[in-house]
Computed example of a mutant assay.
Amino acid sequence: MAKELVELAKSILLAIIAAFLIITFVFETVSVDGLSMYPTLNNKDRLIVEKVTYYFRKPKPGDIVVIKYPANPKEKFIKRVVAVGGDKIKILDNKVYVNDKELKEDYINEETMQDFYEVTIPENTIFVMGDNRNNSLDSRSQRVGFVKYNMVVGKAALRLYPFNKFGTLKQQMD
Results as ranks from 00 to 15, higher is better:
163 F>N: 06
139 S>K: 07
96 V>H: 03
122 P>R: 02
164 N>P: 07
157 A>C: 04
149 Y>V: 09
139 S>V: 12
145 G>P: 10
123 E>N: 06
162 P>Q: 09
87 D>K: 00
96 V>P: 00
104 K>L: 12
169 L>Q: 08
158 L>C: 02
162 P>K: 09
92 L>F: 14
159 R>W: 07
101 K>T: 02
124 N>R: 01
119 V>M: 11
116 F>A: 10
166 F>W: 10
167 G>H: 14
164 N>A: 11
88 K>I: 02
143 R>E: 13
91 I>F: 09
111 E>F: 08
145 G>I: 11
146 F>C: 02
106 D>F: 12
87 D>W: 00
110 E>F: 04
88 K>M: 08
123 E>F: 01
125 T>I: 03
167 G>R: 14
104 K>H: 14
150 N>L: 02
129 M>P: 04
163 F>Q: 07
120 T>R: 05
91 I>A: 13
155 K>G: 07
160 L>T: 12
164 N>S: 15
125 T>E: 01
80 R>N: 03
139 S>D: 09
144 V>Y: 07
158 L>T: 05
165 K>M: 14
164 N>F: 14
81 V>E: 00
155 K>A: 08
140 R>Y: 08
136 S>P: 01
97 Y>S: 09
94 N>D: 13
119 V>G: 05
81 V>Q: 01
153 V>D: 15
132 N>H: 06
117 Y>T: 15
142 Q>W: 11
130 G>N: 09
101 K>Y: 00
132 N>C: 01
118 E>A: 10
103 L>H: 00
95 K>W: 08
142 Q>I: 12
155 K>D: 09
81 V>L: 00
135 N>M: 04
87 D>E: 01
111 E>N: 10
77 F>K: 09
99 N>Y: 02
93 D>C: 06
95 K>C: 10
103 L>S: 02
120 T>I: 09
138 D>Q: 06
114 Q>R: 06
79 K>L: 12
94 N>G: 03
163 F>I: 14
110 E>S: 12
144 V>C: 10
151 M>R: 14
87 D>F: 01
164 N>Q: 15
95 K>S: 15
168 T>A: 05
144 V>N: 08
87 D>V: 00
80 R>W: 04
129 M>F: 05
154 G>S: 11
113 M>I: 13
80 R>C: 01
151 M>G: 12
148 K>V: 11
89 I>E: 03
108 I>C: 12
96 V>G: 04
129 M>W: 02
101 K>M: 01
135 N>T: 02
90 K>L: 05
165 K>S: 14
99 N>K: 01
158 L>V: 08
129 M>Y: 05
128 V>K: 00
143 R>C: 08
143 R>N: 14
77 F>P: 02
166 F>Y: 09
137 L>S: 12
152 V>N: 06
147 V>M: 11
98 V>T: 05
119 V>S: 06
153 V>F: 13
105 E>W: 03
84 V>Y: 01
87 D>A: 01
99 N>P: 02
96 V>R: 04
166 F>P: 04
